[in-house]
Write a protein that binds this DNA or RNA. Structure first.
Lengths: 355, 355
DNA sequence: TTGAAAGCGATACCAT
DNA sequence: ATGGTATCGCTTTCAA
């Protein structure tokens, strides 16, 4: 194990200069004569010197790292989130620490611990208590991702409610459906809570009786299968199932098909997210497109800005637009442009619903 | 922004002791009188002092952090991997840095950069070149996850080939199927490569003609849909499609069903991984169970061991067992124990195939 | 243009 | 039992 990491001092000795000059050369700061710079660079190249990050961090009193805190669920949504965040951070030469709270109550300690190792913290909405968020915000820049933080804490989220209201109205008005059930746990995350609110709002706007209580399940595909079984056991079957996200919708679709139901003839199903599979299943899923990757990237960008500029971005709230994507699972005729990749990524059809 | 992080020196002043004593108290090392300890602890509590991690790292010449490098794909597999790794690392009070290479060729620089910020590096098989791995291994402990590293580099992986051979034999012998196609890109990752090898090995063992070239697609569900379309356009249809993982298998299932094929009557489909959805689709997916979370946890454990003990674990290779899980998509009768959760997690039926 | 030296925050050795 | 101090690796004044 070649642990012979060499230090600036050694490079300095080898190049016959002082450590200060080595620092200047390796950072491109200050004035160094061409001749000296060449000598130092030579030594650096030859021995593969790279400044030790901890030394730099200590001197600069900054970590060049940001943290991402999330509950730790599976699925395309979280993978996209992590990747969007990571790629933006790497662009700014900051490294990314991750922490999965697993929704344990005692995760606060770990988060505080992490706060001591990074310059800024992105926290997924619904992961931490308001108090913990407040405490963190007192220590370092914090941005809430997909949710609203307490006052004074910045957030980046999407416009969940408006699109969900539009989607629900589409079902209630254009398809004249009644008896819609909502699948998802509103107390599980701000996203779901807002979607549930948008769902009810549509009923309210149209003067229709408010929907039944939501079917409170998780956000993964198996949860959707489970939800379908619950719904289909009920005495009064719904005409449509509005799901909190695409994954559960895909699960509901599997469950409903497994029970011999025809979608959308016997049952209408809608999702939220527009994951790649949404366009590829049969029938293709009517859903709401939200820019997950962009959401995460904007969060990283804002966080890095707050961390480096030491700017006071307190309470800035960025809301990204969402867009209803009408496909076949709501009862609309299948789109003519059946190229799955095109349809999947940039739907032509759709109530354009930019927020 | 209460950036008034206080230092050991300030606590020392407040408690009327030296920094050395503060260090002793906060670490529980050395001898401190009960009275002094109480005074120091009081000051620490009152001001919420926590030793600055960078200072500690510099003094201890260690980061208490490990890195995880992976290509950055979506899906349950990667989420499980990250979570398994993270939870084990957190248990050992090490934080986790992640790096998604996005399979870019120039990611080497970023990996080397990361190597300077952590005590050890876990690299997903197929993510980095042998040369880069060698270079890294010369700098710090490295463990290859789901793949074999170059000589001298430890690895943790599963027994891909044996189970894939067993599964393929099940199709060829027990179901007397011929004309099997393989979906997956063997040059994409060591996992797929080994599964492809196991697939061919079964043919060889039985003296059957070797299978057609694999349908080289990615590992995500949409790739499976795409693969299905490719296969179904061919003049000679296969009797069965053996997929490199469950996600593509689920995609193939969607694609095949969309084209009106009945699985398993018209076409047999198998997967690999035993993700939760595998047991829940109709027909339930015959697959191979691999302990992804455990794989990641063992990797973290080994890595932390190498990093802390400074042990020479060069070339230790841990291979976790896999297990064929027979369900309905291969043509076997649907399992009697139809409780999806039970069937999904701990299948009763199955050619037990521990490596 | 360059070097000497003072930190940055914590640890650990060596005195006392 | 406690305190002074060198040290970790780097950056950044301040002088020369």
């Amino acid at each position: 194990m070649g642990n012979g990491r060499l230090t600036a001092r050694e490079i300095a000795r080898l190049a016959g200069v002082s450590v200060a000059t080595v620092s200047r050369v390796s950072n491109g700061t200050g004035q160094v004569s061409e001749e000296t710079r060449r000598r130092v660079l030579e030594a650096i190249e030859e021995h593969g010197y790279r400044p030790h990050h901890v030394g730099q961090a200590l001197a600069a009193r900054r970590h060049s790292a940001v943290g991402l805190v999330f509950p730790g669920l599976s699925g395309p949504y979280f993978s996209e989130l992590i990747q969007g965040f990571e790629s933006e951070a790497v662009n700014s030469r900051a490294s990314v620490h991750i922490l999965c709270t697993h929704l344990r109550a005692d995760s606060d300690t770990e988060v505080i611990e992490m706060a001591h190792r990074v310059d800024g913290l992105a926290v997924l909405g619904g992961t931490l208590s308001e108090e913990t968020l407040q405490e963190l915000a007192g220590m370092l820049p914090v941005v809430v991702l997909a949710g609203e933080g307490p006052p004074g804490v910045s957030s980046v989220r999407v416009d969940n409610a408006a699109s969900m209201t539009a989607l629900t109205r589409h079902l209630l008005v254009d398809h004249a459906l009644r008896r819609l059930d909502f699948v998802g746990n509103p107390s599980g995350s701000p996203d779901v809570s807002e979607r549930w609110a948008g769902f009810r709002e549509a009923h309210r706007q149209l003067g229709l009786p408010l929907p039944r209580a939501p079917i409170r399940v998780g956000l993964q595909q198996p949860d959707g299968v489970f939800a379908a079984e619950q719904v289909l056991r009920r005495s009064i079957l719904p005409q449509g199932i509005v799901c909190a996200n695409d994954e559960t919708a895909l699960g509901v679709l599997v469950g409903a098909s497994g029970h011999g139901l025809r979608v959308p003839k016997d049952l209408v199903i809608t999702g939220f997210d527009d994951v790649p599979m949404a366009a590829l299943v049969t029938p293709a899923l009517t859903t709401v497109r939200q820019p997950v990757r962009e959401l995460a990237a904007q969060t990283a960008r804002l966080l890095l800005h707050l961390a480096t500029e030491n700017a006071d971005g307190s309470g800035s709230a960025l809301v990204l637009p969402t867009e209803v994507v009408v496909r076949a699972s709501c009862g609309c005729p299948a789109s003519s442009t059946s190229d799955p990749t095109t349809t999947g990524r940039r739907p032509r059809a759709g109530l354009h619903q930019a927020g």
